[in-house]
């Protein structure tokens, strides 16, 4: 976990998360989160190279549903929740590039 010593680039990560931080927030988080990352470094004490990872606490497999059509939401309710809509579609600012 040597990379942690560099500390995180809060500004870059916030951009990935689509959050704009003020300068004060950036400075504040930078300090606080580096402290948290420093704390987390204690995991380096453990050798887990031969340990399986746990994604689900209680392992279960093959949870399926039948391919049967069920009820969808009322269109008006969906539109009522949308902050902006046109002709039954959700309106967003013009998408320019992928």
């Amino acid at each position: 976990m040597s990379k942690t010593h560099e500390g995180m680039d809060v500004g870059y990560v916030a951009k990935l998360a689509c959050i704009d931080l003020t300068e004060e927030e950036t400075t504040l988080f930078q300090g606080q989160l580096n402290q948290v990352l420093h704390y987390v470094e204690q995991l380096d004490e453990l050798d887990v190279s031969n340990v399986e990872s746990t994604a689900h606490a209680i392992p279960v497999f093959n949870v399926f549903r039948k391919d049967v059509v069920g009820t969808s939401l009322n269109h008006a309710d969906v539109m009522a929740n949308a902050p902006s809509s046109v002709n039954g579609e959700v309106r967003v600012p013009k998408i320019i590039d992928q």
Binding site: V69, S72, H75
Partner: peptide
Amino acid sequence: NSKMFCSCKYEYGAEPNTHVCPTCL
């Protein structure tokens, strides 16, 4: 007949946003 992770129908050319549910939204 239905979507990958919810039971909404897939139908090409249906009225917009009529085959939607909390999961696919």
